[in-house]
C-alpha cells in the first residue's frame, strides 16, 4: 500500500484490494487507492481499464467482489444512497441530470441527505418545514452562484448547453455537502476554454475543503490539477505517484500508445506480425 509523501493526516478514502468480477471477467483487480483531505487525485487509464467500474465500487452502485472501501475510517455500505449520506458525492460519465426538473430543483434534490423533513412535515407545513425549505433554497442558490448557473435556475436541465449540464451535475453533487467528490470525466466533450473553466471550478471546490477524485482523459487537465495520480490498466493499478513521476513512466506511455513494434508492419521477414 503506497502512501503519498505529502499525506498530512489520516486518509479520507481508503480502498484496499478492491476487486470486481463480472462472471469470468475481472474488471478491477486488487486496486488500492487512498485520498487524503484537500487532495485532488487523478485516476487515468486507457478506455476499458476499469476506471468507472472502480468508481461504481466506491459509490456502492456495485458491491465489490473482494476488498473494502472505508471513508473517514468507517467501512462504506454497498448502497449508493448510504454512501452519499456518508459524504461521498459523484457525477456520471454520461450526464445523468433530472432532465425534466429545473436547474434549481436538480440542486435541491442534491440536498436530500442533508435535510430530514418527511412526508408528515410536508403535509403539515410547520414553521420548521418552511425554515428547512428556505435554507435549502439559499444553499442551492449559493451553489448555483458558485458554478455560474444562478441566472438559469428556472430553466429545465435538459435545455442547458452541454458544458452547463456538466457544471450543474457538479453543483448537484456538491449540494449533498460531500467531503469527497468523485468526478467521472468532467471535461469529456468540452472545448479547451470550457475545460479551463472546469479546472478553475475543481480548484475552487478544493479551496472549499472538499477532496476530489477525478477520472479524466485530458492529460493537461490531470497534470495541471492533481496532487497525485494513479494509472489503471486492464483493471490493475500500474503506477501511482506525483504527476511528474507518472508522466515520465515508460509503462504509462506504453499502456496508452503501445510499445514500438519489434517488426514494423510491411516487414515480411516475420509473417506473424508479432505486436505487443
Amino acid at each position: 500500500m503506497t502512501t503519498t509523501s505529502d499525506a498530512p493526516a489520516a486518509p479520507l478514502l481508503a480502498a484496499t484490494g478492491v476487486t470486481m468480477r463480472f462472471g469470468g471477467l475481472t474488471a478491477v483487480r486488487a486496486v488500492d487507492l487512498t485520498v487524503h483531505p484537500h487532495q485532488i487525485v487523478g485516476l487515468i487509464g486507457p478506455n476499458g481499464a476499469g476506471k468507472t467500474t472502480f468508481f461504481n465500487c466506491l459509490t456502492g452502485l456495485y458491491t465489490p467482489t473482494e476488498g473494502t472501501v472505508t471513508y473517514r475510517g468507517t467501512r462504506l455500505p454497498p448502497k449508493p444512497h448510504l454512501v452519499t449520506t456518508a459524504g461521498i458525492a459523484r457525477t456520471f460519465q454520461n450526464i445523468r441530470l433530472f432532465a425534466n426538473m429545473t436547474v434549481l430543483e436538480n440542486v435541491l434534490v442534491g440536498r436530500h441527505t442533508r435535510t430530514k423533513e418527511g412526508l408528515l412535515a410536508a403535509l403539515l407545513r410547520g414553521p420548521r418545514f418552511h425554515r428547512a425549505e428556505k435554507t435549502s433554497e439559499e444553499r442551492a442558490m449559493e451553489l448555483l452562484e458558485f458554478t455560474g448557473l444562478a441566472n438559469k435556475r428556472h430553466h429545465l436541465a435538459r435545455n442547458l448547453p452541454y458544458g452547463e449540464q456538466r457544471k450543474l451535475e457538479i453543483a448537484r453533487a456538491l449540494a449533498s455537502e460531500p467531503g469527497l467528490l468523485l468526478l467521472d470525466e468532467p471535461t469529456a466533450g468540452m472545448n479547451p476554454h470550457e475545460t479551463r473553466t472546469t479546472e478553475q471550478l475543481v480548484l475552487a471546490i478544493r479551496e472549499k475543503g472538499t477532496a476530489v477524485l477525478v477520472i479524466e482523459h485530458d492529460m493537461r487537465f490531470i497534470f495541471n490539477l492533481c496532487d497525485h495520480v494513479a494509472v489503471l490498466v486492464q483493471g490493475q493499478k500500474l503506477v501511482e505517484g506525483t504527476p511528474d513521476t507518472v508522466q515520465s513512466d515508460e509503462r504509462v506511455i506504453a499502456a496508452y500508445l503501445g510499445t514500438p513494434l519489434e517488426n514494423p508492419p510491411g516487414d515480411d521477414t516475420d509473417p506473424t506480425g508479432d505486436a505487443t
Binding site: H81, T84, M101, L108
Partner: peptide, 26 residues
C-alpha cells in the same frame, strides 16, 4: 403539499433517473 416538498422532489427525481437519484442519497 407532498408534491412541492423534499419528498415530492425525490419522487420526481426517481421518475427521471432512478440511478442518479440514489446517487444523490435518495
Amino acid at each position: 403539499r407532498a408534491g412541492n416538498s423534499r419528498i415530492g422532489r425525490a419522487w420526481i427525481a426517481i421518475r427521471e433517473d432512478e440511478t442518479a437519484a440514489t446517487a444523490m442519497g435518495i
